[in-house]
Design a protein around this nucleic acid. Structure first.
Lengths: 148, 148
DNA sequence: CATAAATCTATAGAAATGCTAGACAAAAGG
DNA sequence: CCTTTTGTCTAGCATTTCTATAGATTTATG
């Protein structure tokens, strides 16, 4: 478990980059790719998927490029990761949006493993669904509240 | 992300079962398999791996079977999951025991994505490294402290 | 029209995952 | 001993997922 795919990682890196450039209009895919060290062609797929999910907007031709569809403070990491990974819960039976029953499970309501995974999920969401792209830009003292 | 493999899930289920049987001596693999709805052959691999990692003990021949090598309160879920999944952090660059650098990353120290994933990891560990097999047996009000 | 840029489709290699089959080893009972 | 019971180990395979790559297409600008 508990590993982000390259795709999701690249998506996050690209979005952080675009968040920094938010005021500057369209950004070329090539620029993002070079700055973040990502294969240009692979990044295309990723930005496209983000666009189809309403996270990015784009314009073709000269002066074109990609930009955030909403301000960085309105884009949460949980949303992004769900686009590429689906559920954030460690088990489908612990997920709300992507719920799926475990075939072998006799009684979900008393399943100890599920109970713990609900806690893990809850802890994960408490970070990912409260951290926006803008929040990630404050390094130094980032997310100190989570450890408080 | 953040999805347990079947193997890890089965391991946890088997261990919870063995925790309940802790006082009763060796338990047959077949009994665990049937009770938890797991393929017997697949479960063999899993219990073996747990044994090789010192979590279980076993005895061959008549009256044989598997049992927990330590009392349920001394076996933490984080330990189990690491056996099957490796790192608990969402990215290798955020893991202590399984650290690996991201090839494309220009500067890990200022990487915003890594910073957030350190938080996610920390939140995950706070659950998995403080919950023992014994803790999982108290359903009803399980782990209430985590949400407090 | 020429050029720059995003868009879309298809596909393919590599790795991980989930599982099965079958031979082997050891312990206990008779 | 010999048989039965039970865990141990190795190999392999089918499927899926991941990570790209290639190439053709569409749209906008000047």
């Amino acid at each position: 478990m508990i590993s982000l795919t390259q795709k999701a990682k690249y998506a996050l890196k690209a979005l952080v980059f675009l968040a920094k450039e938010y005021e500057n209009g369209p950004v070329l895919i090539t620029k993002v790719a070079e700055s973040e060290g990502i294969s240009r062609k692979f990044l295309e797929l990723i930005l496209l998927e983000l666009k189809n999910n309403g996270v990015l907007q784009s314009k073709k031709g000269r002066g074109g490029g990609y930009w955030l569809a909403r301000p960085p403070e309105d884009i949460y990491l949980g949303h992004i990761i769900r686009i590429f990974e689906g559920a954030l819960a460690p088990l489908p039976c612990a997920s709300k949006r992507y719920y799926r029953r475990c075939e072998e499970c006799a009684d979900e309501a008393t399943c100890e493993v599920r109970a713990v995974m609900l806690e893990v999920k809850s802890a994960t969401l408490r970070v990912l669904d409260t951290t926006s792209l803008r929040d990630t830009l404050h390094l130094g003292k980032p997310l100190a509240l989570v450890d408080a």
